[in-house]
Simulated scan of single mutants.
Amino acid sequence: MAPAAANPMPNTQSAKKRLRQNEVRRLRNRGVRSNMRSAVRRVREAVAAGDQDAAQSAFRLACKKLDQAAARGVIHRNAASRTKSRLNAAMKKASQAA
């Protein structure tokens, strides 16, 4: 899914450079987003399995990944905060049920 193919070809040197920069940033952001989503998924899986220790360690890593993604502008800082809050609430609920 390359946005360069969908858009008309750049004509100016600055537009060509911007296209190269956007491609590099898109790929970098995709990696950051993928790592972040994987970390969040691991927390949810540990909570669903009822493994509190694994959930705690995965939660710490997920918080770090969410904050890094927010700092880089991949996601909004409020979205990162909301996700951390919901993960924490899910962990609390699971620990009280156990």
Rank of each mutant, 00 (worst) to 15 (best):
R42H: 11
A90D: 13
N35G: 11
K65M: 10
V40K: 06
S38M: 11
S81H: 10
A69Y: 02
H76F: 02
C63A: 07
A62F: 14
A70N: 03
R37S: 11
R77C: 05
A39G: 10
L87T: 15
S57H: 12
V74E: 03
K64R: 13
A90F: 02
R77F: 07
R41N: 12
R60N: 11
R82M: 08
A80H: 04
S38W: 11
R41S: 10
Q52E: 15
A80M: 09
R72C: 02
V47I: 12
Q68N: 11
G50I: 02
R60C: 09
R77D: 09
G73S: 01
K92M: 06
A71G: 01
L87Y: 06
R37I: 13
A39V: 09
R82C: 05
A48N: 08
A69I: 01
S85A: 15
R44K: 10
D67G: 02
R30Y: 08
R77M: 06
L61H: 12
M36F: 06
D51F: 03
A49S: 14
D67I: 01
K64I: 08
N88A: 15
R82Q: 11
A79R: 02
A39I: 09
A58G: 13
A55Y: 05
R41C: 07
S34F: 08
S38T: 15
A71Q: 00
N88K: 06
M36W: 07
N88G: 13
M36Y: 03
A58K: 08
R82K: 10
M36A: 09
R77I: 04
L66E: 02
A58C: 14
Q52D: 15
R42V: 13
M91D: 08
S57C: 12
S34Y: 08
S85Y: 10
R72S: 00
A69F: 00
H76K: 00
N88Y: 13
A49G: 09
T83Y: 04
N88W: 11
E45N: 02
N78K: 12
R37T: 10
A79M: 08
L61K: 10
L87S: 12
K65E: 14
A58R: 13
M91T: 09
R77A: 11
E45H: 01
E45K: 04
M36L: 06
A46D: 12
Q52R: 11
G50C: 06
V40T: 12
S34Q: 14
K64S: 14
V40C: 04
Q52P: 07
D67A: 05
D51A: 13
L87F: 04
T83P: 08
K84R: 13
S81V: 03
S34T: 14
A62M: 07
F59S: 11
A69N: 01
K64L: 13
A49T: 03
S38F: 11
